[in-house]
């Protein structure tokens, strides 16, 4: 029994070295020559098990799960335990909301809008952002707000990096930037799920946005969809091809799907432009930023690059059939 226990310890020591430190089986065996005959087959089996365990979640599932997770977080309002703390937190939020309302239209509202991290009015601005997001339903409208807020976060990083060593603040703003971009990715993934519902599979690759906006013809992108929306006074009509009658199709059903496509296409294009501009802005700072803030800035660049790329990729997949 004792011998078994000793061998279990040796095996575990070798596994730790193999799995975590990247040692080879041969190196482990050299450390324990007296047990090498018994150890070797077990270590090789353990390595095979690890390879068989390399099961990665699909990108689509990750995006869908992330979206659900964000929704759950938004819906979950933690109850505070300490009443004093509750009062303080709620009071602060209420004060911020009152300030936002009172300041609307005044010069202070402008000051709040332009406030930067570390400034007195900045928490008010962040609260206003939360209110703004909370009042917007999930979808393209919320994605637009997150895009604007991501742009704002990059402005804040540039502001902080140009002034003094504020690496801790840059890191916090970078986390918010990540949050905005990850939410765009999640919203795009949810859009893909919506796009897969029957009657609304509309590939992004063949848009005819002008036609959608005019409502005078069915765009190619949605031709073939069974639901044609409301029927005009001239009577029922199928999806209108080039030879079809110019019937009145209002903005319901398929035209609404086409209009939604158009907005997402525009959104993706804008996000791509924003990505290029933001990465350039952040990279231009590298030569001038103090050494102490360099690491935080490099992290911000990496987060921005990965976040934008993932969001754009999710948008590109969003309306693919």
């Amino acid at each position: 029994m004792r011998k078994d226990s000793e061998f279990s310890n040796v095996l575990e020591e070798c596994l730790e070295r193999l799995l975590r430190n990247g040692e080879t089986v041969e190196q482990c065996l050299e450390r324990h020559p007296e047990q090498s005959t018994e150890l070797e087959p077990l270590l090789r089996t353990a390595l095979d098990v690890r390879k068989a365990s390399a099961i990665e979640p699909s990108a689509e599932f990750k995006a869908r799960a992330r979206y659900q997770f964000h929704l759950a977080m938004t819906e979950s309002k933690p109850a505070r335990r300490l009443w004093g703390w509750v009062f303080r937190q709620r009071w602060q939020k209420a004060a911020a909301i009152i300030l936002v309302v009172l300041l609307a239209g005044s010069g202070m509202a402008v000051a709040t809008y332009h406030s930067m991290p570390g400034e007195l009015l900045h928490p008010v601005r962040l609260t206003a952002e939360e209110m703004w997001l909370a009042q917007t339903s999930p979808g393209i409208a919320r994605a637009e707000i997150h895009r604007e807020l991501a742009a704002r976060r990059v402005e804040e990083i540039v502001y902080l990096a140009e002034r003094e060593d504020r690496s801790a603040k840059i890191e916090r703003v970078t986390q918010r930037l990540y949050y905005h971009l990850a939410t765009i990715e999640s919203l795009a993934a949810a859009e893909r799920v919506l796009a897969m519902t029957p009657g609304e599979v509309t590939p992004l690759s063949t848009p005819d946005t002008a036609a959608v906006e005019k409502h005078d013809a069915v765009p190619q992108a949605v031709a073939g969809v069974e639901d044609i929306g409301e029927i005009g006074p001239e009577g029922p009509q199928g999806p209108a091809g080039p030879a079809g009658p110019p019937g009145r199709i209002t903005l319901t059903g398929l035209t609404r799907a086409g209009a939604r496509d158009a907005r997402w296409i525009q959104f993706r294009a804008t996000l791509k432009q924003q990505e290029a501009a933001h990465l350039a802005d952040l990279r231009n700072l590298l030569p001038v930023v103090p050494e102490s803030a360099r690491a935080a800035l490099l992290t911000a660049i990496a987060v921005a690059e990965a976040g934008y790329e993932r969001a754009i990729e999710a948008l590109e997949q969003a309306r693919e059939p």
Partner: peptide, 25 residues
């Protein structure tokens, strides 16, 4: 625990893949 969504999102990202691998196996 105080409702910071960014903090929770960070925890989520760092554990998600491993939880999935464990469950899948």
């Amino acid at each position: 625990q105080q409702g910071d969504q960014e903090a929770f999102a960070e925890l989520y990202e760092s554990h998600f893949d491993r939880i999935f691998r464990y469950v899948a196996l």
